[in-house]
Simulated scan of single mutants.
Amino acid sequence: MERKSETATVIPIAPVQAPAPDPVERFESLTEELLAEPSRTPEILATAAVRTFGPRASAWAARTRAAYPTASAEALARLAVHRFTRTAEIRAVVGALTGPYTPIAVTGGVLVSHAELVLHLAAAFGVDPEDPGRAEDLLKLASPGPGPVVTWLAVGLINRRLPGVSVLSAVLGARSTTEAVAVRARRFYRKNS
């Protein structure tokens, strides 16, 4: 009696992905990390920004490329710059209305817009915005420098005599710093893509 060899069919099983962390858990983890190593605050926040905004940037680039299949990387970059310049301006206006917390609110809002812009520009130029290495890019490209703080000190003095100057200066400052970040990021990703 001849024995037939039996072969088993292997069915690949997709790896089980862990559910996305609850935003409260992620916040507690980030807070714990910041408290444990306050000297690493910029690196920790940049890494958190990549984890949070990187997937959004990837999804945006995929949707935009699907909608405009003939669009160049430069065209996608222009869309991202326009979008996040507007976002920074809106966040600056809202921040300017927070009273004594205005410098913190405006600077925080603008920094978030800069992080989103840099990651969206990376995606526009075909660089993976979810790669943890983008945190280094954020530290190099998304910093507005000391300009906003100095501006707010001056505006605080002027705003006492001319109410409303803070809102106008917030919008203009957000626009100029976001455009400066856009120029640096486009140049960087154009060269490194």
Results as ranks from 00 to 15, higher is better:
68 Y>G: 01
55 P>F: 04
77 A>P: 11
166 S>K: 11
23 P>H: 01
86 R>F: 00
20 A>W: 07
173 G>A: 12
35 L>I: 03
25 E>G: 05
29 S>F: 05
111 L>D: 04
180 A>K: 11
115 A>R: 09
185 A>S: 14
45 L>E: 14
114 H>F: 10
128 D>K: 01
7 T>P: 11
13 I>S: 13
57 A>E: 02
2 E>G: 04
10 V>M: 02
113 S>C: 11
119 L>M: 03
33 E>M: 09
177 T>S: 06
187 R>E: 15
53 F>V: 00
178 T>Y: 05
107 T>N: 12
33 E>T: 12
105 A>F: 13
48 A>N: 15
193 S>I: 02
135 A>E: 07
22 D>G: 12
180 A>N: 08
4 K>W: 06
178 T>I: 06
193 S>G: 15
163 P>G: 01
11 I>K: 08
43 E>I: 00
46 A>P: 12
27 F>K: 11
147 G>M: 11
176 S>K: 01
25 E>N: 06
24 V>C: 02
88 A>K: 08
161 R>V: 15
179 E>Q: 09
52 T>M: 12
92 A>H: 06
105 A>Q: 13
16 V>C: 05
60 W>K: 02
171 V>E: 01
179 E>S: 04
154 A>G: 13
62 A>M: 03
129 P>W: 03
167 V>A: 15
123 A>H: 12
16 V>R: 09
136 E>D: 15
161 R>I: 15
156 G>I: 05
126 G>T: 10
130 E>M: 15
151 T>R: 11
57 A>H: 08
101 Y>K: 07
177 T>Q: 11
